[in-house]
Amino acid sequence: MKYAALTGISPSVIAELKGGKARTLELCSAHNIITLTEAAPGECIFMTSVNEEDLAPGDPGIMVDLLVLSISMKRVEVVNPLFIEERERMSARIKVQFRGTTIARDVEGRKWGDPTKVEVIRSACYRAG
C-alpha cells in the first residue's frame, strides 16, 4: 500500500513525536503541501528527515496517524514609506500521532507537482497505546 510521504522533517520533531503525544505541525514546503492535498484525516502518513530529492528505498522514517489537516493561505503586508507590498504564503497545519517506525521500500512522485508517496516495509513489532 502507498502512503503519503512528508520529507525534510526535523529530526528533533520526529524524536518528539516518538514520545507518543499528538503534536501540531505547520509545514510550508511546497512539496509537502502538494502531498497533503491528497491526504485526509484518519489516514497514515510516512514522515522522514531525508530531503525529497534524496529519498530512496531503505531510508528510515516513522508512520503517524493524521488527526487534523488544514491547508490555508495567509496574507502578509509589508509597509515601507514608499509603498505597501502584499505577499501570500500557503501553509498546512497538521496534527499527527506516532504509530511506529518503518523503512521506505519504494518511492514515487519525483516530478514537480506530484505528491510524494512511498510503499513501506511493515513492522513486525507494534506499539501498544
Score class of each variant (00 low, 15 high):
residue 55 L to M: 07
residue 55 L to Q: 09
residue 72 S to P: 02
residue 94 I to Y: 07
residue 54 D to T: 02
residue 85 E to D: 08
residue 44 C to R: 11
residue 72 S to N: 13
residue 88 E to S: 13
residue 27 L to P: 07
residue 29 S to C: 01
residue 43 E to C: 09
residue 53 E to I: 15
residue 96 V to K: 01
residue 21 K to Q: 13
residue 57 P to C: 05
residue 63 M to K: 14
residue 94 I to E: 00
residue 17 L to P: 15
residue 27 L to C: 08
residue 86 E to A: 11
residue 32 N to C: 08
residue 49 S to I: 02
residue 38 E to K: 13
residue 33 I to E: 00
residue 71 I to W: 10
residue 83 F to S: 10
residue 39 A to W: 11
residue 43 E to P: 04
residue 82 L to Y: 04
residue 92 A to C: 10
residue 86 E to S: 15
residue 45 I to M: 06
residue 63 M to N: 04
residue 26 E to R: 14
residue 83 F to K: 11
residue 35 T to Y: 09
residue 54 D to F: 03
residue 14 I to A: 03
residue 96 V to N: 03
residue 61 G to F: 10
residue 27 L to Q: 10
residue 62 I to G: 06
residue 39 A to G: 11
residue 50 V to R: 01
residue 98 F to T: 00
residue 11 P to M: 00
residue 11 P to D: 04
residue 85 E to Y: 11
residue 85 E to G: 13
residue 94 I to P: 04
residue 45 I to R: 02
residue 73 M to D: 12
residue 83 F to Q: 13
residue 23 R to M: 11
residue 58 G to Y: 07
residue 100 G to V: 06
residue 60 P to S: 12
residue 81 P to Y: 05
residue 102 T to L: 01
residue 29 S to V: 04
residue 23 R to K: 15
residue 24 T to S: 15
residue 56 A to I: 04
residue 72 S to V: 14
residue 65 D to M: 12
residue 41 P to S: 11
residue 82 L to E: 06
residue 69 L to P: 15
residue 56 A to V: 08
residue 68 V to R: 15
residue 85 E to N: 13
residue 79 V to K: 01
residue 41 P to Y: 13
residue 15 A to R: 15
residue 65 D to C: 12
residue 47 M to S: 01
residue 93 R to E: 15
residue 14 I to L: 15
residue 41 P to A: 13
residue 56 A to M: 12
residue 44 C to A: 11
residue 26 E to I: 15
residue 10 S to G: 03
residue 52 E to P: 01
residue 46 F to G: 02
residue 33 I to T: 05
residue 97 Q to E: 10
residue 92 A to H: 06
residue 55 L to G: 09
residue 23 R to H: 08
residue 62 I to L: 05
residue 59 D to Q: 04
residue 48 T to P: 01
residue 12 S to L: 06
residue 105 R to I: 00
residue 91 S to A: 10
residue 53 E to A: 11
residue 47 M to L: 14
residue 27 L to A: 09
residue 77 E to I: 14
residue 19 G to E: 05
residue 98 F to V: 00
residue 79 V to W: 02
residue 23 R to V: 11
residue 80 N to E: 09
residue 107 V to Q: 04
residue 38 E to D: 07
residue 28 C to D: 09
residue 98 F to Q: 01
residue 20 G to L: 02
residue 19 G to L: 06
residue 34 I to W: 00
residue 97 Q to I: 10
residue 32 N to V: 03
residue 105 R to L: 06
residue 25 L to K: 09
residue 82 L to M: 05
residue 17 L to F: 11
residue 15 A to Q: 13
residue 94 I to W: 07
residue 64 V to Q: 12
residue 14 I to W: 12
residue 51 N to T: 04
residue 33 I to D: 00
residue 53 E to R: 13
residue 88 E to W: 11
residue 23 R to E: 07
residue 36 L to P: 04
residue 42 G to N: 07
residue 22 A to K: 08
residue 95 K to E: 15
residue 78 V to R: 02
residue 83 F to E: 12
residue 76 V to L: 08
